[in-house]
Write a protein that binds this DNA or RNA. Structure first.
Length: 582
DNA sequence: ATCGTAGGCGCC
DNA sequence: AAAGGGCGCCTACGAT
């Protein structure tokens, strides 16, 4: 059907109705290259994947999600949103904005879909068969869904995706390091595939265990709204009985908690747990309040409502699955994000994350990823040498003539912008012994402070925005500049670490699939792989091999005289996430 | 009534 | 002198 080879770009769109019969009414899936287009069924997409292994150009995770839902897991992708975020920073974008940026068109007044009203009837014929309007912009109606109204339009939409990918590749080629940025674009695109699969598969979670854990914190499941109110009041009473009689304070209002504390003779600027920690012995109410807070967190965020909303079944086995939405590169530095509490499950709840019968988890996290990444991206020879040690802080401490704890605080402080306390003194030692790494951070901080954008090692644009100088005091301006400095400094390390992690993750995704294993959780520097018991050892070996492969591909050219930076994992095979030792 | 912000806390 | 970054999610609260 198509003259394509492995890795060639092929535009792919899938309409809301999925793929009907090829060319027939309702066939809204289409593929396109620069020379051919076709309406296709999802079966035909699967065949093309198996026979040609192209790199599928998709507008967003929506297409990938439709594929996964249809049971198709492709190897390669070019995700236009993911590459857009790499090139231009920021968050999600629609086709209109992506196209405009690539073509040098202003994005200040992007065409909008006008809601149909008495005077503005949408005329389906008006949109024609060209997704690009006379002014060069993408027709907003197309982006809003009109592209799926006919096979011809779907084909044109797939063709536009292909053309957009070509434009993006052109911009990557025009960068200072085309090979590296292209590698990042491909890795980030694969991460979006992984995200679609994570969202579909879900994290194995034992409902009964989860219920038991919740119950241990907040008591039994309420039978009604009224019952819930009673139980809530009972939990509040455990704190309020320590309060002055006839007083009325709302524990959920930080301001009122502050007033309450003042009434019992405790004056604080805020009521955060770490601040109250040292005041535990001052008054029994403090202890009760801290326990209440912990329970309240479970009750509101990880309680029965959370369970009911986000935990469903595996379609095959009926086992519990916690599902959320996944994004491959949200936020400043391009980390993965997840909803439904997947990225911030309380430690106590991990006891409910249990592998299916006959399956286990291979859990692996990257050891000291940020200082190792700093060594790699900065090209600091001395720091790269230190990375040879299982514990980087040991050689650093020896070099600086301080204890390990001080060395660790100093290194972390340097990366995060902290310059006070014990770290400050050791910072000077870092400057002397690891000048390249420290200067890398300082340069990022200086650039960020004046509001200039940065790019991570992998090429992601970190936008610094602009300070609103008119309504802040001189003092605030300075603190804003300092904050921007910390932000930029941190984004360079955290961002590069995120890129490296994703390269590792997508490599694992590809390698363990033949074993029947699947990644079920990505947690910034940690992978949880669900694998059949008999494949556990092989999976574990692959996870480690993939790290070495990723490290080799990610930083192939160490500075002359420097050893390659060493990366390592802490790896365990477990039946329950809580069994991980740490 | 709806919205955005702030305080707070979970994880890395 | 002092300064930690990121995210999601909850509640209260003030502004609109």
């Amino acid at each position: 059907m198509f003259d394509v080879s492995k890795g060639d770009l092929v535009g792919l769109v899938i309409g809301p109705g999925g793929a009907g019969g090829a060319g027939g009414a309702g066939a809204t899936a289409a593929v396109a290259t620069g020379t051919a287009t076709a309406s296709v069924t999802l079966d035909e997409v699967a065949t093309m994947e198996a026979e040609h292994g192209p790199r599928w150009v998709v507008w967003s995770q929506a297409t990938t999600g439709a594929l996964v839902a249809a049971g198709i897991r492709v190897a390669r992708a070019w995700d236009l949103v993911a590459v857009h975020r790499l090139l231009y920073g920021g968050w999600s974008s629609d086709p209109g904005r992506i196209w405009a940026r690539l073509n040098g068109l202003s994005t200040a007044n992007l065409p909008q879909v006008r809601p149909p009203d008495l005077f503005n009837q949408v005329d389906p014929a008006a949109a024609g068969n060209d997704p690009i309007d006379d002014d060069g912009y993408v027709r907003a109606e197309w982006a809003a869904g009109a592209w799926a109204e006919s096979p011809e339009r779907a084909a044109a939409w797939a063709r536009l995706a292909w053309r957009t990918a070509q434009l993006q590749q052109g911009w990557l080629d025009a960068s200072s390091d085309p090979a590296r940025m292209t590698a990042t674009a491909r890795s980030e695109s694969a991460a979006e595939l992984l995200c679609a699969e994570l969202a579909h598969d879900g994290l194995p979670l034992d409902r009964e265990r989860a219920e038991a854990i919740i119950e241990s914190f907040v008591g039994r499941r309420p039978r009604s709204d009224a019952d819930a109110a009673v139980l809530r009041a009972e939990r509040d009473e455990l704190v309020l009985r320590h309060a002055p009689p006839d007083s009325r304070f709302d524990l959920r209002s930080p301001g009122q908690v502050k007033s309450l504390l003042r009434r019992i003779g405790i004056e604080v600027t805020d009521t955060r747990a770490w601040r109250l920690e040292s005041l535990r012995d001052e008054h029994p109410l403090v202890e009760a309040l801290l326990a209440w807070r912990k329970a309240e967190r479970v009750a509101t965020t990880y309680g029965y409502a959370w369970l009911d909303e986000y935990v469903g079944d595996d379609p095959d086995t009926g086992a519990g699955r916690l599902r959320g939405e996944w994004s491959g590169s949200d936020g400043a530095a391009g980390r993965m994000t997840a909803s439904a509490g997947l990225h911030n499950l309380p430690g106590d709840m991990r006891g409910a994350v249990v592998a299916d019968d006959g399956w286990v988890f291979v859990r692996a996290d990257l050891g000291q990823i940020e200082p190792r990444v700093l060594a790699a991206v900065s090209g600091d020879v001395a720091l790269a040498r230190a990375s040879a040690d299982d514990d980087m802080y040991t050689p650093v401490a020896r070099q600086l003539g301080v204890d390990r704890a001080t060395a660790k605080v100093a290194v972390l402080g340097a990366m995060y912008g902290q310059t006070t306390g014990h770290g400050a003194q050791a910072l000077r030692g870092l400057q002397q012994n690891y000048p390249v790494a420290i200067e890398y951070l300082e340069a990022a901080s200086r650039t960020a402070q004046v509001g200039t954008d940065l790019r991570t090692y992998g090429g992601r644009l970190v936008r610094m925005g602009t300070a609103n100088a008119n309504d802040v005091s001189e003092r605030d301006l300075r603190s804003h500049a300092a904050a921007r400095g910390r932000y930029g400094r941190n984004a360079m390390v955290q961002g590069a670490a995120a890129e490296f992690f994703k390269l590792w993750a997508v490599t694992v995704r590809a390698r363990v699939a033949p074993l029947g294993a699947r990644i079920v959780l990505c947690l910034h520097d940690e992978l949880l792989v669900h694998t059949p018991l008999e494949s556990a050892e092989a999976t574990a070996r692959l996870v480690d091999e993939c790290l070495q492969e990723a490290a080799h591909r990610w930083a192939p050219r160490p500075v002359a005289g420097a050893p390659p930076v060493r990366f390592l994992t802490d790896l365990s095979v477990i039946g329950c996430w809580a069994d991980a030792k740490d």
